[in-house]
Design a protein around this nucleic acid. Structure first.
Lengths: 301, 301
DNA sequence: TCACATATGAAAGATATTTTCGGCTCGGTC
DNA sequence: GACCGAGCCGAAAATATCTTTCATATGTGA
């Protein structure tokens, strides 16, 4: 019936053009026309039926099939499959060059590709640069904390909220503060055994450093998530988690990649804590999921 | 007749598994079996005829064709061609695949690696699955909008805020609503020329659908950002932007990958709008940056 | 439990591929 | 120049493959 797939995609791969050249002398005129068309535009031919290819080359179906046979396939169907594979390989071959910045006149499809690529890059960088010892220490502190306060402003404020939401879901007591005054007011309440986390890309956002300092001075365990491990915020941090800083451009402000990076760190913290408190975290997660179920309309099919 | 070859091979092929995941919920049991087989062994399935694949999955030819249709191909023939292309890519690409789930006893370093990898995967899937036409339309609407309202609850609420923050920074008028009542109250104010965006992973969060419906009925241009392109929310959406759905596990709830995916979409929207309104966006961005400068202590060193 | 909607596969119908077969060309021979 | 045979070629028949239709099965909510 159909040729074994290994034979189709195995070694012969890109050598189709070569095979055509080798076999050309033993081909009749019409067959050469077909072979040429196939070698010249594999992708295009893959989209054609026997009849289509026959018409295109001004020959007949029979000739197309004969050519396919000569090229080593059991029939046109299999040649076509191989052609599709070839086309895909060619496609993927010329992929990598996305190094450029996003330009004002980039088509929307390029924007998507570039953004996705850059965010992937950011993630890889962050993972590579993250100090697992510090992370482990921060996780341990969180897992055993009486309560946790998270400070963040602007874009980092959303990350702070994200962390808080997650921690609450596994039964921990956590609050996010984006109001600097309230943050400080609450920081005063913290003491040994509590955790305070400051999230700031620049590491020099006064409104976030201040509550962390207060928490630090009241004996809480303090964590800083920042892109600048040498910045002021680290003065008051027991553990520093470094996010990656990627090239920013006019159309892609720093907030974008720092957010991606911060979220990865936050996710790591969350999963780490969930592991450590699995016994209580798992049921809590399930319960919170359950509680929301009725908020979703049943999905029509 | 046969689908244009560009459509088959255009987007990076690896997205098939992602597409299967996204569409799985809207599939019937037998279709899921077929989709699974196809996603699990593209190369193997490429070697099978409809009948063969139907037998392998214990279903009928009709079901196989239906599945192919759902996956976006005009028929099985074209799905098979795409499969062949995929198989070829895998051959050459040598997938790295850290497919394992995160386990309770994974060391923290593994957690970081796995999370980063999965989020990267999510980004790639999202980029591959994003309809750039819909995206372009949404961007155009946003760029010309009198005002924009964004609805999101829970984790999606943060994404909604993120989008709002960004749009505000380039001088657009945008509000994020996470209070369903206020959202509806405000939606009533919208009219033609305004934009309403609903962000919901499940696509069936009533509290988010309701304001979108109201906005829709008042003539606003509506956009849905959801992981389920067939869900209720899309009823009231002029443009649907699909986020990717990745395998979730106990320690990695859906909220995590859906957030990553949603943020990429939101970033694309933002950059797209910034491009379109460059003349006003660039100075606005610069101004907002300037305004914050004094909030950062001068950095030592 | 019934009524309704949906899912499913068998088989008919439509296409695509392969095979058959006879005409045709071309080079050689008388 | 006419004839002959070998092999090329394509029209059309035969087959395989894919698609559609439709009746039955299955599940689901009232």
């Amino acid at each position: 019936m159909t040729q074994d797939v290994k034979e189709i995609f195995g070694s012969p791969g890109g050598s189709l053009a070569a095979k055509v050249r080798t076999l050309a002398p033993s081909m009749t005129r019409s067959m050469q026309r077909v072979a040429e068309a196939v070698a010249g535009d594999p992708a295009g031919c893959a989209a054609l039926t026997v009849t289509g290819l026959a018409e295109l080359t001004g020959t007949s179906e029979a000739t197309v099939v004969r050519t396919a046979r000569l090229l080593g396939y059991p029939g046109y169907r299999d040649l076509r499959l191989a052609l599709a594979g070839l086309a895909a390989q060619q496609q993927s071959g010329r992929a990598p060059a996305i190094t450029t910045d996003i330009a004002v006149d980039d088509p929307i499809a390029d924007v998507v590709t570039k953004l996705a690529y850059e965010e992937q890059q950011t993630l890889a960088d962050t993972a590579a640069g993250l100090d697992t010892v510090q992370l482990g220490a921060a996780v341990a502190a969180l897992a055993g904390a009486r309560r946790t306060d998270v400070y963040g402003i602007g874009a980092s404020g959303l990350v702070a909220q994200d962390l808080t939401q997650k921690l609450l879901r596994i039964g921990l007591i956590a609050h996010a503060h984006s109001d600097p005054h309230l943050a400080v007011t609450n920081a005063v309440q913290l003491r040994s055994g509590d955790v305070a986390i400051a999230i700031t890309h620049s590491g020099s956002t006064g409104d976030v450093i201040e509550p962390l300092r207060v928490a630090f001075e009241h004996g809480a365990t303090t964590v800083a998530i920042t892109g600048r491990p040498d910045s002021p915020v680290t003065q008051y941090a027991d553990h520093v988690l470094t996010t990656s800083t990627s090239r920013e451009s006019e159309l892609r402000p720093a907030a974008m990649s720092s957010r991606t990076s911060q979220l990865l760190v936050v996710d790591c913290l969350f999963v780490g804590v969930a592991q450590r408190t699995y016994e209580t975290a798992a049921p809590a997660l399930a319960a919170s999921y359950e509680a929301l179920a009725h908020r979703h309309r049943t999905n029509p099919r």
